[in-house]
Design a protein around this nucleic acid. Structure first.
Length: 815
RNA sequence: GCGGAGGUGGCGGAAUUGGCAGACGCACUAGCUUGAGGUGCUAGCGGGUAACACCGUGCAGGUUCAAGUCCUGUCCUCCGCACCA
């Protein structure tokens, strides 16, 4: 049969059309007995696919296709993280209604994903901006509220005085409003909703060890640091001339005798009380400054309130300061400054001339006097009354016990992890299902009134109150409890809520009476393999873990972690930089598909680098992949008609080709199961193809059917269009994915004669041929009689010969 | 500062358990194919040499018959966290 030219466009269009018309193709089996849940992080529907998506989904799809051929029942769904600020920005710019804009983008990106041939079950598609989905956000929120896991508290927001509106963090550029370059952002205090992630801090930390091995160590470390558990003590200081007390948190209670001042965070409730009337403006400026947070360049700054506290251990009169480096969000928002034993306190106290009193001495040696820098290590307590002479660990426990017995303190554990602020003063998000009644206070919306639907007829101006707060029809309501006129909550939820549980919804996406049927979720969970960018290592993945634990405590699921395995793919770079609009270095997957086809695109993103590493985009590399697929296509098509002939004995070429084929099967199978180095899998397929070209003439119909069929199957995870086409060319029927993955036949791997490298003093000098399985003695004598070897030994005495049968001979010659 | 990843040809990268460094691809060179160009096929391609020798995995040591791989020290790059008391 004459070979055909590889016409990617015709082939891909043909199969794309066929797959579109086959609704059963990637339909997820019901009631799986051997399930495999492979999931890639859902995209934000920006309107355009980018290479990061192409890479992420090419990895996941290769795995999904492989697992299907391995006989698993695969769940491989897709959805849209469809709420969020960009839709409002688009409305601002172009006047398009956010939902309309979002749905258009979804349609466009869905087309792109289909064009790339990903084997997704589109019947399970979920868009988080639809009431069918977000009503369950509201339902979960109410359950959390009932359990005290959702609560309100005062919290600071970014405020632009020009727009008279709240800004999201990403709308703050260099401390100024994104729309008013010269206008510094201020901090305003607002009642907002929080979810009590800290209630699960300990479990979130503990659970990390159960993920060990399945999640990248890097991600686990980042999460541990993020949770930031630290053990210490809380101590109350009384304030002279006031009934209030200041509670501080410290990990070094043993240094309390060296506390020469207390420092409050500027947002500390007592800061405004203790600061004098002349200091209020300064306090406000400090809060705003902190909010603008130029992290490293913010110099330590503060002022004395003029008030004093009493050290409960020794009664020392301790001045109360306010300092910009003390964080309200950590510990109690107040610290005792021990300049002798803490670098930051040392810096602050040195700047303001506050006394430095050493209370810990190194176990051996003396501290310099005066101190040149803080001594932060453990040692022996001094100047600490009855606790002097104790080593640090013992001083800590004895002094904590003393504080507890005396009623002014106790051991305490603090986490860096904060409660999750979910309120957004935005339109395009899930309405928080609460009502504010002047009689009853905050009242939850009853379940049977869900969903609280987001109105579509809003005006988005970007200034003033949020669009919902100006939408009277939305907020005007009756109190569910007393029936009086009341006002709906107009804050919406952080979009991380949407993505915290979407993968459960995929299991039962059309359920209209519950978020999902627990029995169905139990069939699929946990996710076997989750794949996404490492940029989500912390927030998304902690919130998802939190949500899972809450759902478990609600009795909806039995798993405590959402995913047993996580894979974080590397970024796609161009010229060493992240692809971005501003750099103008974007390569558009859709253009690439148009020019070279989806198969080439998929193959290249997997070939250019191992999937966990960043990859640098090189256009010339793409052409190499196209060339490879052309070679495969021509080889298969020109040999396709030799299948039918009567098989005879295997020729030498047959044996050679079959050996290479089965080596390749073994390599790729192992890689899917363990290493995921798809770049080397594709290299192996190229090697196989090169080998087939070299021995093509001698191939007979004794081996060709297997070779052509297996080659096509091995390509299926990577290049599904080409595989489908070749499968048909070979006259094989039924979807390729329903045929089992080829298995290794060890008999073909055997070689009669093998080549053994021979080293002299560790350097490669020759190679000898020997029968497979030749004993060590035979290899040794063959090596010693090799001409090149003799020349290199040059008469020197042979001290030792190391022989690894089947592998290597090393001759050690002395002198 | 703390934590993590990495440093191999002109380039992307390979080397899975300490055992032939540079698989595979790109770029480049030559031959064949072609009216020409491109495509395609075959071969070459770390430095060095006429050919060997020799040198070569950031740098300096070490262990070993044998080191990209293990150990010690050191330099550089990238990423994450960064006043967390």
């Amino acid at each position: 049969m004459p070979e055909k030219q590889y016409q990617h466009q015709a082939i891909e269009e043909k199969w794309h059309a066929r797959w579109e018309q086959d609704p059963t193709l990637y339909k997820t089996p019901e009631n799986p007995t051997r399930k495999y849940y492979v999931l890639e992080m859902l995209p934000y529907p920006s309107g355009r696919l980018h290479m990061g998506h192409a890479r992420n989904y090419s990895i996941g799809d290769a795995l999904a296709r492989f697992m299907r051929m391995r006989g698993y029942e695969v769940l491989h769904p897709m959805g849209w993280d469809a709420f969020g600020l960009p839709a409002e920005n688009a409305a601002l710019k172009s006047g398009r209604q956010p939902r309309e804009w979002t749905l258009r983008n979804i349609a466009q990106m869905k087309k792109g994903l289909k064009r790339l041939g990903f084997s997704l079950d589109w019947d399970r598609e979920v868009a988080t901006c639809e009431p069918e989905y977000y009503r369950w956000n509201q339902w979960f929120f109410l359950r959390m509220y009932e359990r005290g896991l959702a609560y309100r508290k005062e919290s600071l927001v970014n405020w632009c005085p020009q727009c008279a509106t709240v800004l999201a963090n990403e709308q703050v550029v260099d401390g100024c409003c994104w729309r008013h370059e010269g206008t510094p952002v201020e901090q305003r205090s607002l009642e907002q909703w929080f979810l009590k992630t800290t209630a699960y801090a300990e479990e979130l930390l503990d659970g990390i060890s159960t993920l060990e091995g399945g999640w990248p160590e890097r991600v686990l470390t980042m999460q541990r640091n993020w949770i930031g558990k630290s053990e210490g003590a809380e101590v109350d200081f009384t304030i002279e001339g006031s009934a209030d007390r200041i509670r501080i948190f410290t990990t070094r209670i043993d240094t309390i005798h060296g506390a020469t001042c207390l420092i409050l965070a500027p947002e500390h409730p007592l800061a405004a009380v203790l600061a004098g009337p002349g200091q209020q403006a300064r306090l406000k400026a400090m809060v705003d400054d902190q909010g603008r947070k130029d992290p490293s360049s913010l110099e330590k700054d503060g002022f004395a309130t003029g008030r004093f506290a009493l050290n409960p251990f020794n009664g020392a009169q301790t001045p109360i300061w306010i300092g910009n480096f003390v964080l309200m969000g950590y510990g109690t928002g107040a610290i005792m400054a021990v300049p002798a034993h803490d670098e930051r306190d040392f810096e602050f106290c040195t700047k303001y001339g506050i006394p430095i009193v050493p209370v810990v001495q190194p176990a051996s040696g003396e501290l310099a006097a005066p101190l040149q820098q803080a001594f932060c290590e453990y040692g022996i307590s001094i100047n600490s009354g009855e606790f002097s002479g104790l080593p640090t660990p013992e001083a800590r426990s004895r002094m904590t016990a003393h504080a507890e017995a005396s009623g002014f303190g106790q051991a305490a554990i603090t986490y860096r992890l904060k409660d999750w602020g979910v309120s957004r003063q935005r339109y395009w998000g899930t309405p928080i299902p609460m009502v504010h009644c002047s009689q009853c206070g905050v009242v939850p919306v009853p379940d049977d009134q869900l969903p609280v639907v987001l109105p579509l007829d809003v005006e988005i101006t970007g200034a003033g109150e949020s669009p919902l707060a100006r939408h009277e029809e939305f907020w005007r309501t009756a109190c569910p409890q007393c029936g009086a006129a009341a006002r709906r909550e107009t804050d919406t939820m952080d979009t991380f809520v949407d993505s915290s549980w979407y993968f459960y919804r995929y299991c039962d996406p059309h359920n209209s009476t519950a978020a999902f049927d627990p029995a169905v979720v139990a069939q699929w969970f946990p996710i076997d393999q989750y794949i996404g960018g490492v940029e989500h290592a912390i927030l998304h993945l902690i919130y998802s873990r939190f949500w899972t634990k809450v759902m478990r405590d609600l009795g909806l699921i039995t798993n405590s972690e959402p995913a047993t395995k996580l894979f974080t793919q590397g970024m796609v770079l161009k010229d060493g930089a992240k692809m971005s609009k501003s750099l103008g270095n974007i390569v558009d997957p859709e253009e690439l598909v148009a020019a070279f086809g989806a198969d080439t695109c998929r193959l290249y993103v997997l070939f250019a680098a191992p999937p966990d590493k960043d990859m640098d985009w090189q256009q010339s590399g793409v052409e190499g992949q196209y060339r490879f697929l052309s070679r495969v296509y021509r080889f298969v098509t020109r040999n396709a008609d030799r299948l039918a002939a009567q098989p005879g004995e295997l020729s030498a070429a047959d044996k050679r080709a079959l050996r290479k084929l089965h080596q390749t099967i073994a390599k790729i199978t192992l890689d899917f199961e363990q290493r995921w180095h798809f770049n080397t899998c594709i290299a192996a397929l190229m090697e196989l193809t090169n080998e087939l070209y070299l021995c093509e003439e001698g191939l007979t119909s004794a081996a060709l059917p297997e070779i052509l069929r297996s080659l096509t199957q091995l390509l299926e995870p990577f290049t599904p269009f080409l595989s489908a086409e070749l499968w048909e060319e070979l006259g094989l029927t039924g979807p390729i994915s329903q045929h089992p993955w080829p298995s290794v036949n060890a008999a073909y791997l055997q070689e009669d004669e093998i080549e053994i490298p021979v080293q002299v003093n560790g350097k490669l000098r020759s190679k000898i041929k020997a029968p497979n399985g030749a004993p060590a003695a035979a290899l040794e004598s063959a090596a010693l009689s090799d001409e090149k070897v003799i020349a290199f030994i040059a008469g020197k005495p042979v001290a030792k010969v190391i022989v690894l049968p089947g592998k290597l001979v090393n001759i050690v010659a002395k002198g």
